[in-house]
Design a protein around this nucleic acid. Structure first.
Lengths: 298, 298
DNA sequence: AATTCTGATATAGAAAAGCTATATGAGAAA
DNA sequence: TTTCTCATATAGCTTTTCTATATCAGAATT
């Protein structure tokens, strides 16, 4: 398609519009420019193609014999391009595209999707699981949920939940514990990627300076939780990570001492954009479900 | 197709090229611009469409799920546009397009076209009959033949034949004529559009100031000749106009007195262009045929 | 672990394309 | 002859496109 390099695409479009509509006036109206602009483009394009495409008559522009097949092919080309643009511009408003961290999806959201479908049968959810912060203004994501300090200047961050961490282990392990300091005797399961450490909890538990024996280190919080469920040790988890396992009785949170990390779960949307109803509905639903989760921690 | 107004065509082309070729580097090469230029155009077009068409990977650009149908439609569109441009750029070198005055075509050239075909079976002649001067640089005419003073600054004019005029009438009318002054008694057939008058010939015949009785005035030289052939009177004709009728014995040129009008037949071509072989062949052939015509006037 | 390579993006400023506003010309219609 | 319609030319402003250069991120190599 290198031959397209020798002619301006805007000129080809001018040719096509004039050919289809029969006059500079009509073409100018469709293209949204002045008659002089279309005239210049047609003349320039004819020169670039080294062809006379139109015969100028007092009643308007008539395609020459040589020009007619060219205009037919141009019409077909621009019709396809127009269809392509229409395809891109059509918004399927029934699809809500969300972006969440994989661990949030796997440990909290995926268990609730059936209830979302029940509450909002008109909304089709499309989930993009990535840890990267997304800017909904720059991609076709409607809303994101991320954990962090919320200080992201390029997006609008709205606090959903303050993150609190607490130790979790199997019930049988917990039976051996009489006081918080007894936790120090248990092997610790460490999330190498966590944005916080045990020291945050130690302070809250009055055990500042104390440490646990590290048994396992993973680079994925979800794997850590699996290891805790398997009885491998104690893990410092947070609400959305451990909520389901607590509810199912697979894990317990001994002593109920919780510490705030300073981070939070945030809704991430685009600056200065009026939120569509489906986004507002989703946020409201997420808040209601989060309230249900928090009942575990009263 | 107004929806195309909201996105730059060059951007759509960049999208298509990257989609088809898989990287900015390859697309830049095909489009004949720098990688940075393609990158900017893709980013801008994605913003204008409000769509993420590509996922950026370390190995290059991958079409997103939403982008793939768009790119397919764009590819079809640009393929058609490319075909259109190729159609326009293809020169059918076997076709020679000439532009001549209708009267020159009807009274001189058309009788000889069989001989042109014999001499040049490889050249297909396409004749555009119009009185308007053409500029081969600005239209798809290869060469023109026009009568005039040859002072046309926008084109290259090469003298073919100096125009000479002379009275013509039927043989039976001529039988009654003993000397040039006897012509003055005959009714005159006048071409209202001629660039010269009888005075030009009168001077050459030593009859300066004399005049004929006007019987008929036409606005077409060809009709004048038809009237002369029909015995309606005497007409002041020129070589290419009357040559065939003289050769056929339908008309005679009594006394053989000819006058130059100051005009001429000229080949009209574009300035500063090396003439293709078919144009050179055509000119040579025309000169040879013209020499044959002039044998009538020796 | 450090370095190199590949591919994409950002930016400033220059070049080219596109556009508007206005004047003008040609032919048809009134 | 006048008016109307349609196209063209031109100057200069605006927008788009482009280049050159610096930078970044991830993969591959050492």
């Amino acid at each position: 398609m290198r031959n397209l390099n020798s002619v301006h695409l805007n000129g080809l479009r001018a040719l096509e519009a004039v050919g289809r509509l029969g006059s500079l006036q009509a073409a100018a109206e469709e293209l949204g420019v002045s008659i002089g602009a279309v005239s210049q483009q047609v003349i320039k394009a004819e020169a670039q193609l080294d062809r006379t495409i139109f015969e100028r008559t007092p009643k308007g522009m008539l395609a020459t014999e040589a020009g007619a097949p060219l205009l037919a092919a141009l019409n077909e080309g621009f019709a396809h391009l127009s269809r392509a643009v229409a395809l891109a511009q059509r918004r399927d408003d029934s699809i809500l595209t969300i972006s969440v961290a994989p661990v949030f999806a796997a440990r909290w959201l995926v268990y609730r999707l059936d209830r979302f479908a029940e509450h909002h049968p008109d909304i089709n959810l499309r989930m993009d699981a990535t840890m990267k912060l997304v800017d909904p203004a720059l991609c076709d994501v409607d809303i994101g949920i991320r954990v962090g300090d919320g200080r992201w200047p390029d997006v609008k961050a709205e606090l959903l939940l303050e993150q609190e961490v607490f130790p979790v282990c199997t019930p049988s392990m917990a039976e051996r514990l009489r006081e918080p300091a007894d936790l120090l005797a248990l092997p610790a399961i460490i999330d190498g990627r966590a944005m916080f450490g045990w020291d945050v909890w130690m302070r809250a538990a009055g055990l500042e300076g104390a440490a646990l024996e590290t048994r396992h280190v993973f680079n994925d919080a979800s794997l850590c939780l699996d290891a805790a469920i398997a009885g491998q040790g104690v893990m410092l988890a947070w609400q959305t990570l451990a909520g389901y396992a607590l509810q199912q009785g697979q894990l317990v949170a001994p002593f109920g001492i919780r510490a705030r990390t300073g981070f939070g779960h945030y809704f991430v949307t685009a600056h200065g954009v009026r939120e569509p109803k489906k986004v507002r509905d989703f946020k409201a639903w997420i808040r209601a479900e989060m309230a249900e989760t928090l009942k575990l921690f009263i």
